[in-house]
């Protein structure tokens, strides 16, 4: 049962990935990021799902050029999950990824406050 769920999830992430590529071609990076963040596999322990989704989120995140512009069209419901992925990005230690994460982190903290950081750090059940 669990195995089937994981397969379904991987399929869904692959589908998401294609959709994101299309959105990026149409130069809609914020839409792509929203798509990437939607239905993220947070409550599973399966590392494969998490990595697959992180690759998709990373792809969309790196395509963001105008961070201020992004926040004018990103709804607050995405803030908490985005923060979790920012910390995952910072954990990679990869220079361009970290640069981008820090840029977004600064603006996100301004928007969503320290509470958002606390929620992403304190949550040990729904991890990304």
């Amino acid at each position: 049962m669990e195995e089937e769920n994981i397969e379904a999830m991987i399929l869904r992430i692959e589908h998401k990935s294609k959709k994101i590529e299309n959105l990026l071609k149409q130069s809609k990076p914020v839409e792509a990021l929203k798509t990437a963040l939607e239905v993220s596999p947070t409550n599973t322990k399966d590392e494969r799902c998490k990595s697959a989704n992180w690759i998709v989120v990373h792809r969309a995140m790196m395509a963001i050029r105008d961070v201020d512009g992004m926040f004018s069209s990103l709804d607050p419901e995405y803030y908490d999950i985005l923060m979790k992925y920012l910390y995952r990005g910072l954990a990679t230690g990869d220079r361009p990824t970290c640069d981008q994460c820090l840029r977004i982190h600064e603006k996100l903290t301004e928007k969503a406050g320290l509470g958002c950081i606390l929620r992403s750090l304190a949550d040990t059940v729904n991890t990304v």
Partner: peptide
């Protein structure tokens, strides 16, 4: 909660319904 969220639960005894409020400040 220590995750900057406060939880309100109505009608605890019969049919509990929860409402979470996440806020932007420290817990």
């Amino acid at each position: 909660g220590h995750n900057s969220t406060v939880y309100f639960v109505e009608d605890v005894r019969n049919s509990p319904s929860a409402h979470n409020v996440a806020y932007r400040n420290l817990p």
